[in-house]
Simulated scan of single mutants.
Amino acid sequence: MTELEKDCLFCKIIRGEIPSYTVFENDDVKAFLDISQVTKGHTLIIPKKHLVNFFDYSQEDAARFLQYIPVVAQAIKESDPTIKGLNVEVNNGEIAGQVVMHSHIHLIPRRSENDPISTPHVNNADQYSEADYQAVANAIKNNL
């Protein structure tokens, strides 16, 4: 693919201008170790087309690029018998913690409950009535 940005960090990795520890690559995607290694084996999957985040994806883009998530996830799991699970994370937009503005998916192996990872989730169910839930669901449905 030639739809890459000149100054994008991940586009530079795709072009080979910046080295990476590649674990999988084909015409559509590149998967490589995240330099931070939140846990051993932490891997990023990026499309070889510059898309900022999921808001930029067409259905064709999703079909073309996201199909490799289970392929790489399974390879990560099989690479180490101590891996018991995997966090699949996407930070979509700056407000959601996206740092590199090129779509990427984090595959973070989990070995124990004591891994140095935090996945905070807040339960706000007591703040929603059935009408509130239905209004939110309808607003989303109306945009599909």
Rank of each mutant, 00 (worst) to 15 (best):
E17A: 03
I46N: 01
A131Y: 02
S129L: 00
A131G: 01
L107N: 05
T2H: 13
L86R: 15
A139Y: 14
F10D: 05
T39N: 15
N138E: 11
I117G: 04
E130T: 13
P81V: 07
V29E: 04
R111I: 06
E94C: 04
S112A: 07
S129Q: 01
S20M: 02
S58F: 05
I18M: 14
D27R: 03
T39W: 00
G85F: 03
A73E: 10
V88I: 10
R15M: 09
D28I: 04
G85S: 03
M1E: 10
D115F: 10
N92S: 12
Q37D: 05
I18H: 05
S58D: 08
D7L: 04
Q74W: 12
Q67V: 13
G93A: 08
L51P: 10
F10C: 07
I83K: 01
T82N: 12
L51S: 07
R64G: 01
T39G: 07
I18Q: 12
V72L: 12
K12R: 10
Q59E: 04
P81A: 09
L9Q: 09
P70I: 06
V88Y: 11
Y68R: 01
E78G: 03
P116W: 02
L4D: 09
S58K: 05
G97P: 07
E5I: 11
D61C: 01
Q67I: 15
K40G: 14
I105R: 02
V29D: 02
T119S: 06
E3T: 11
G41F: 06
I83Q: 02
A135K: 15
L51Q: 10
V136I: 14
D61Q: 00
Q74L: 12
T22H: 03
E3S: 10
A31Q: 03
K12N: 12
Y21W: 02
P120N: 13
L66V: 08
M1N: 10
I108C: 14
N143C: 00
H121Q: 15
D27P: 02
K49P: 00
Y21R: 03
E94M: 04
E78D: 15
F54H: 07
G97V: 02
Q67F: 05
Q67M: 14
V72T: 09
G16H: 01
L86C: 14
V122S: 07
A73D: 06
N53K: 01
G93V: 07
T22N: 06
V136P: 11
D132A: 12
N87S: 11
I46H: 00
I117L: 08
L44P: 11
A135Q: 13
T119D: 13
E25V: 09
K84M: 02
I69K: 13
G41Q: 03
K141S: 03
E94F: 05
P109Y: 15
N26H: 09
F54N: 07
G93F: 11
A137K: 13
I13E: 01
Y128P: 11
I105W: 08
A137H: 08
T119N: 13
K6I: 13
A125T: 14
N124I: 15
N26Q: 14
L86P: 14
R111A: 11
Q134I: 10
G97R: 02
H50D: 08
G85V: 04
H106E: 12
E3G: 03
Y68I: 00
N124W: 07
D7M: 03
V38C: 12
H106G: 09
D28S: 14
L9T: 12
T2W: 08
L86V: 15
I18V: 09
I45N: 06
P109N: 11
Q74M: 09
A75G: 08
I13V: 06
D61L: 01
